[in-house]
Simulated assay, not measured.
Amino acid sequence: MSPAFLTAPTPRRTVLRGFGAGAAALAGAGVLGACSSRETQEEAKAGGAGFTVTDQRGKKIRFDGPVERIATAIIPSPSMIAAVDGSHARIVGINESTLQANREGIFGTLFPESKKTATVAGADFLPNVETVVDLDPDVVIQWGDLGEEVIAPLENAGFKVIGLTYGTQEEMETWIGVFGTLLGKEERGRGLVDWMHEEAAAVRGLVASQDREDPVPVLYLRTAADGWTSADKTQYVNHWTELAGGVNVARDEATATPQVSVEQMLAWDPGVVLLSGFDPATPAAFYADKRLAGLRAVRERRVYKIPLGGYRWDPPCCESPLMWWWTAQILHPALASRVGLRAKLAETFQNLYGHRLTRAETDGILHLDLNAGSSGYDGFRA
């Protein structure tokens, strides 16, 4: 880390630049996650005279003043909005899945009000327009590529709708820029993106330092009603797998979220299996499935539950750099005890949310209990 992590608090503009360079001091990083009310008001004035946002449908949405009430049907967006804003105060409506994550993970500790936020959509993302009307948001965040049925009801009711698309690092960075504009915190948004670029470069450098000729074969699994699904090369899973020095064994499947049978798992024979944070599947249950006893990842005890931080780490979010580091250390076990992921967690949560993690909170995020029986995971205790 940069020596600037050890410096005294600096003026807000300097801290924001330092965050982009991975250089916010723990002592002063709370400035990033929890601005004073005066600073928040001053930044919000950036949109006071009116501004325009171009969403990922290419549609321009005009706002006449600051945005104070946001409803979002998109599952990962509330944690990203909170990271950009340093607050949950402007979020009035969320997806049911987000509410579940808020109640199960640490986000509800960071922002207790998030555990009681009204829900405006479920797994199908179809908006509950009646609820949205009651909430009276200044804007609704919705998927821009799921068809008119998820957007038209909102626009027909008179709401401004920002349509977003998902899947790549570049698209996530666009989200951060959109949220920075909406919240009047463009500089903060740019700092977050710069920080991500530097963290990606650092992870690539770390992986390149390992003496390994071939990438580690990795299988990402998410439970489905009739078994398992995975993710192909169009999904964000592929991004962080390759960044961390792995190869996604499902990358060339014909569909974005292919069904995966036991027979297919055995044919792929991955060296590492990563279980999604979206469902209750655990390594212990995976090891206990006799059908999978011949799988290399089972024989070598290399099945892991993906962490749940301010949001689930599988999809793109502001904590994605932590997922990159975690995955790199899973794929290269010798790194787990040498690269301080716990310290990175502490720094990142202070920077993003203005929260100083306890040891127990860090243990919970990393699922030390669920992953206790998996090879090398004790390295994350230090």
Rank of each mutant, 00 (worst) to 15 (best):
F63P: 02
G294P: 03
F278E: 03
W326Q: 06
G379S: 05
A201I: 08
I81A: 04
A83G: 02
P316W: 08
I70W: 00
S230R: 07
V161N: 09
Q210E: 13
D85Q: 12
V237N: 11
L368A: 01
Q210I: 10
V53Y: 02
R13T: 12
G30N: 06
H88I: 13
V132G: 04
V273P: 02
D369K: 15
S375M: 11
V139R: 05
A328D: 07
R356C: 09
P3K: 11
N238V: 04
Q210R: 11
F5L: 14
G340L: 04
T327H: 00
F111A: 04
E263M: 09
L182Y: 10
V339R: 14
A343F: 07
A4F: 14
P333G: 02
W240F: 15
G20D: 09
R299G: 03
L370W: 09
V161D: 07
W228E: 02
I162H: 03
W195S: 13
Q210F: 09
L266Q: 04
L352N: 06
K290V: 10
V132M: 05
T7N: 13
I330V: 13
D64V: 09
S261E: 07
V178Q: 06
W195F: 14
E300R: 05
T168I: 09
R204D: 13
K305Y: 11
A284F: 08
G177V: 01
L335T: 08
A73F: 07
L345V: 07
Q259M: 14
W326S: 05
I81G: 02
R13H: 10
Y287R: 10
A49S: 06
A231S: 13
W195A: 10
A267I: 06
S77W: 05
V31P: 04
R62C: 09
I306C: 05
G191P: 01
G364V: 06
K344M: 12
E68L: 13
W228T: 06
V273H: 00
A8R: 11
A83P: 00
L219W: 01
A224Q: 13
L110H: 02
E39M: 09
D279F: 10
S374R: 01
D194W: 08
T52P: 01
G47W: 00
C317D: 14
E173D: 15
P321F: 04
E213S: 14
Y236P: 04
G309W: 00
L192V: 00
P215C: 08
Q142M: 12
A244H: 03
L135R: 05
G271S: 15
L32D: 01
D289Y: 10
E213P: 04
F63K: 02
N238E: 13
R204L: 13
F349M: 08
T52S: 05
V161T: 11
E170G: 12
V53Q: 06
A201C: 02
N95V: 02
N156R: 15
Y304G: 12
D232F: 00
E68K: 15
S37G: 09
D211F: 03
A101G: 12
T131M: 09
D232K: 02
T117E: 01
F278T: 00
K60P: 03
R342Y: 07
